[in-house]
Design a protein around this nucleic acid. Structure first.
Length: 491
RNA sequence: GGGUUGGUAGCUCAGUGGUAGAGCAUCGGCCUUUUAAGCCGUUGGUCGUGGGUUCGAUCCCCACCCAACCCA
């Protein structure tokens, strides 16, 4: 980082000037006692908890300044918000006031003073003294236009957070969402665990893994693509209600909806089934929305700019096959596979979405994914998926071509799958061997051994936290709910 | 992987085959209750990178890099 410009040079000169005056521009410690948050000071004054002329000490980053000659206004910002500081030459003294006037935007300072309201009505702190806490050697983004360059916003997210308050709010809310999720499961008696991210056999999903190597053990490991198989081992071990929130890694394409590493919630409940878990998902999302957004009705704009209202009060349950029949014809599942393929390609115009090698269930899958899923705006549990799609679930007794599975779709996106977990080790081995044959994956023998020791019947869910955040926070890109999304390193 | 769009001052953006522009920020001056403060003045550029065409390229052509979006 040897790059420089006149603005940086100026700031370095100011830094040297402070040092020459014996001022340490990078304080080890804020010596101000009983620091009040900048935004908190405003709020407390508003509520009457801080009176006119009440003494306060605040610290924050300078986000604006308005120079009046022998007095100056600055805005000071911390995570609690913004407050105006009023500095007068007479109150600070000549030399300190000169120093104050030459502070730069983005510098951190501490201020001691008293609360008051200006003639214009602005709640402010009248400075009696101040301390330089940290000098900023680079200028911040524009105060009014903010930071728009997506590349800089993602690579230097700290600048995005400084310049774009709505971005900061989004990430604060993401944190609140995750806090609510944890509270929800803890209240229901779940145990939170951490399972290996480095796995010898990456299981629990069909996805390309990242590969790594352990030098001391002399063998390959893979970054996990799912949490599932380790959490089920814990069901075997008697942890009856278990959940994990953690990162998964998939070595696949990047898009508006895909980041190579993403955050997954998985939860399993012994003696439950897919219906138990539908209730769980519904209650969880309602609680999170209510406590973080303060409402169950979320209105936002979609890509084409039209407003979409998502009402989380009522959750529909409908079978996969019925939804497909609505789009593809009532007789869809009665006709021959070749006719299904023809109809999908010719009548439903899905030629581009159906590869030559697609099996019959994949043809139907394309119909669902392209024609049904995008239309599921209101919360919908799509149940009874074809068994080929979910090898780790139990067959439905009333239709053995399907499994006891749901996909929860909101805003045209899958938010959460859940199912009655397969706990028959013999049936599980068969489906995994069949799948492994096609995908040339290694069988996780230890997982199958665990099942043979007996796994209680259980319901399980997975929720993509990033996509849940997108839906709740009205973000169209996964990069806008991940602080540091993956980008190609700059050469 | 393919397509489209973009990359110009610290930030947001104009612009042109012939000395590179605005607003904000910076720096200086005036102003002790302003708030996108105001007024006057001022500094600041490898026009993404590398080639090519041309008397001359930030602009036209080619390749490459990075990003966003769409498609696979």
């Amino acid at each position: 980082m040897e790059d420089t410009n006149s603005l940086i040079e100026q700031r370095r000169t100011k830094l040297a000037a402070l040092a020459a005056k014996g001022i340490n521009p990078f304080m080890n410690k804020v010596s101000l006692k009983e620091l009040t948050g900048c935004g908190d000071a405003r709020a407390k004054f508003e509520r009457g908890e801080l009176a006119e002329d009440a003494p306060v000490a605040i610290a924050g980053r300078i986000s604006a300044h308005r120079d009046m000659g022998k007095s100056q206004f600055i805005d000071l910002k911390d995570v609690t918000g913004r407050v105006q500081v009023y500095a007068q030459k007479g109150a600070l003294g000549d030399e300190p006031f000169e120093i104050f006037k030459h502070l730069d935007l983005a510098d951190f300072i501490g201020v001691k003073g008293t609360m008051f309201r200006t003639r214009a009505g602005e709640i402010s702190v009248k400075a009696e003294s101040f301390t330089v806490l940290a000098k900023a050697l680079r200028p911040p983004p524009d105060k009014w236009d903010g930071l728009a360059d997506t590349e800089v916003r993602y690579r230097q997210r700290y600048l995005d957070l400084i310049a774009n308050d709505e971005v900061k709010q989004t990430f604060l809310k993401r944190s609140a969402i995750i806090r609510e999720i944890r509270a929800f499961f803890h209240e229901r008696g779940y145990v939170e665990v951490e399972t290996p991210m480095m796995q010898a056999i990456p299981g629990g999903a069909a996805a390309a893994p990242f590969k790594t190597f352990h030098n001391a053990l002399g063998c390959e490991f893979f970054l996990r693509i799912a949490l599932e198989l380790y959490l089920k081992r814990l069901l075997v071990g008697g942890v009856d209600k278990v959940f994990e929130i953690g990162r998964n890694f998939r070595n696949e394409g990047l898009s508006r909806k895909h980041n190579p590493e993403f955050t997954m919630l998985e939860a399993y409940e012994a003696y439950g089934d897919y219906e138990t878990m539908m209730e769980t998902v519904e209650s969880l999302v309602k609680r999170v929305a209510q406590n973080v957004l303060g409402t169950l009705v979320v209105t936002r704009e979609n890509k084409s700019g039209t407003a979409v209202t998502i009402d989380l009060t009522t959750w529909r349950r409908v079978r996969y096959k019925d939804l497909v029949r609505e789009k593809a014809g009532a007789d869809w599942f009665d006709i021959a596979p070749a006719e299904r393929r023809r109809r999908a390609i010719e009548d439903l115009k899905l030629a581009g979405d159906i590869a030559d090698g697609y099996e019959d269930f994949e043809v139907t899958g394309a119909v669902f994914e392209k024609l049904v899923e995008p239309t599921l705006i209101q919360p919908t549990f799509v149940t009874h998926l074809p068994k080929e799609l979910v090898p780790l679930a139990k067959l439905s007794p009333d239709d053995p071509t399907t499994v006891e599975v749901f996909e929860c779709c909101i805003n045209g996106q899958e938010i959460s799958p859940g199912y009655s977990e397969q706990n028959d080790p013999i049936a599980q081995r068969e489906t995994l061997e069949h799948q492994a044959g096609g995908e040339q994956q290694k069988l996780d023998e230890d997982f199958l051994t665990a099942l043979e020791h007996g796994m209680p019947p259980a319901g399980g869910i997975g929720i993509g936290i990033d996509r849940l955040c997108m839906m709740l926070l009205g973000q169209e890109s996964i990069r806008d709910v991940i602080l540091f999304p993956q980008l190609k390193p700059k050469a």
